[in-house]
């Protein structure tokens, strides 16, 4: 059977969040199993199931090249810009 990754929205207003995976023959079975495995205590109001094979992920070995450039762009943050005391918050 196929591997499905399970995402659950805890309550409306929040994002769906990855909680784990399970095996199922089709998306409908994956949904039903996810209901039983991952929401026995009102953990969710909505479930997404995604075939694991359908997910394309970034490569951890390239994470420096991918994510480090953001570190030296501190001008993207408001605290980079000093404000006169009189203005205080902005």
């Amino acid at each position: 059977m196929k591997l499905y990754e399970i995402f659950i929205r805890a309550k409306s207003g929040l994002n769906h969040r990855h909680v784990g995976s399970l095996h199922a023959a089709d998306p409908q079975m994956a949904l039903q199993n996810a209901r039983d495995v991952y929401t026995r205590r009102e953990e969710g109001v909505s479930i997404w199931v995604v075939e694991a094979a359908a997910i394309t992920a970034s490569n951890p070995e390239q994470s420096e090249a991918w994510f480090d450039p953001a570190a030296d762009k501190i001008y993207r943050h408001p605290t980079f810009y000093p404000l006169d005391e009189e203005v205080d918050n902005m």
């Binding site: 059977m1 196929k2 199922a24 023959a25 089709d26 079975m29």
Partner: peptide, 11 residues
Amino acid sequence: RKAAEIYQQNQ
């Protein structure tokens, strides 16, 4: 398990 596999194949 077999039935589930055949079902998956049919789908």
